Amino acid sequence: MGDPQNPYPLKAAPKVGDIMHLPTGVLVTPEQMLSIATDARVVYVGETHDNPASHRLELDVLKAMEERHPGKTALGMEMFVRSQQPVLDRWVAGKLDEKAFLKESHWFDNWKMDFGYYRDLLIYAKEHHIPVVALNAEKDLAQAVGSTPLEELSPEMKARLPEMDLGDPYQRGMAESIFAGHSHGKLVMDGFVRAQTLWDETMAESAARFLASPQGKDRHLVVIAGGNHVAHGFGIPRRVFRRIPTSYVTIGGNEIAITRKEEPEIMDVDLPDYPNLSYDFLNFLAYEELPETGVRLGIAYEPGPDKRGMQVQSVLPDSNAERAGVKEGDLLLTLDGEPLKETIDLVYGLKQKKVGEKSTLGVERDGKKLTLEVTFQKTEKVHQHGKP
C-alpha cells in the first residue's frame, strides 16, 4: 500500500519554498514547521554541504530555537572534531576574531569548504553566546577504523572508540549502494561502513554527552550534519536516542531546481527503498551558488623557505598579479603591510577586498625588497589549487 517513504504524496508537483510534513503529506509554512520543531529537545538538520539554501535553513532553525528557548540553545556541528572544542569555546566567548578562528581551528585543513557557507551560522552563535559542540571523530581514528578491522586496532585506538553498532541494515544498504558498480571490493566497502558508523556513533555520543552534562542538561540542541547522517534516522538520530531517549525532529532538503551557473557534481547512486520516512519535514530547495566574495591575485604559490612569505610558482596571464608586475620566483612577504606567514594570511586578506580596490604587495626578488601596487579587476574563476 503506497510508498513508506512518501505515504501521502502531493497531488501537484512541489515548488521551491514548499515544505512538506512527510508523515501526513500536509504542506506547512516555515512558521508552522519551526513552531513544531522547537517543541523537541533535539532538531537534526540534514544539509547539502555546498548549497547556501541548506545553510539558511539551518540558521532559521537555530534562530527559532533560540527565540523559543532564549539562553537554553546549543548548536552541534559535524564540521568540527572534538579536539577543536577549546577553539569553539573561545569563539563563542568572543575571544577570537574570524581570522584567528580560522587559523586556530585549521578550518581549511579540516573541513576544506568555503567558510562563507557557515559564517552566518557561527556568527549568530557567537553573538548570542550559544555553545557550539564539536561532534565528529578525529581524522587519525577515522583513517585507522576505515583501514583496519576493529579487533585488529591497537589498544590505544580501541580505547578511543565510541560504542559501535555495526549491525544497522539501512546504513549497510546505503554503503553498498554508493559502492555499487565500483571495483573496490568487499574489504574496502567494509572499511567504509566502519568509518561511516564511527562518524555517526561519535557524533551521537558527543551530542548525548552534551545533553546529559551540567552545561547541556537544560538546553535544546540543533544538530547540523550531511544528509546521509540524518536522513531516515539510522545515522545520528537513532544512535543518540539509544544513549539518551528524548524528543527529536528531523528536517531536510530536496533540491528540485538548479540556479547556480555551474552544474553540480551528481553521484550516480541508486539508493535502497528504505521502509521509513526520510525526514519529518522536507524543504523543497533550489541548488544555489555561494555569492562570490573577495578578489583574485592570479598566482600559483607555495609557502616560502623558513616560513617566510609565499613563493610564487607561476603567474596567470592577464591576471591582477601580472598587471602589478609580480614575477615567477618572487617571494610575497606582506599584503597591505600584514605579514604573509601562512596560506590563510593571503587567502583571507584577498577575501576582504573588492573589485576596484588597491593593495600593496611587499615582495622580495633576487634578494631585493620591492613594493608593488595592485588594482583588483574582475577576473574569471580558475579552478586550480593554490591560485588565489
Results as ranks from 00 to 15, higher is better:
A13E: 11
F80P: 05
R90P: 05
A93V: 04
P30H: 06
H21W: 07
T73V: 10
V81T: 06
L62K: 12
K72G: 13
P14T: 07
V81I: 09
K11T: 13
Y44R: 04
L59W: 10
I19F: 02
E67S: 14
D39F: 08
L57F: 12
S105A: 02
D18H: 06
V92P: 00
L62H: 09
S35L: 14
P14M: 05
P23D: 08
M33Q: 15
D109S: 11
V87C: 01
S54Y: 13
H69D: 15
S35Q: 15
V16Y: 03
R68F: 03
Y44G: 11
K63M: 10
V61T: 15
L34C: 11
A40Q: 07
H21N: 15
L59R: 09
L10D: 13
Q32W: 10
R41L: 11
R41K: 15
W107L: 12
H21F: 04
E104S: 15
K95I: 08
K63A: 15
V28F: 00
D109I: 09
S105H: 04
D39K: 15
V42M: 12
R82M: 08
I36V: 15
L88D: 03
K11R: 13
P86D: 09
A74T: 05
S105M: 04
A40C: 09
F108V: 03
K103I: 11
V26S: 00
K103C: 14
E67M: 15
E47G: 07
R41V: 09
T73L: 08
L57P: 12
V92W: 03
M77S: 07
V92K: 02
K11Q: 07
K72H: 15
A40W: 09
S83P: 02
L10W: 15
H21T: 09
H21L: 10
G46H: 02
T38S: 12
E104F: 12
K99I: 01
Q32Y: 01
P70K: 05
H106M: 08
K103N: 07
A74Y: 00
V28S: 02
M65E: 13
A40D: 08
P9E: 12
A13R: 00
P14R: 05
V92R: 01
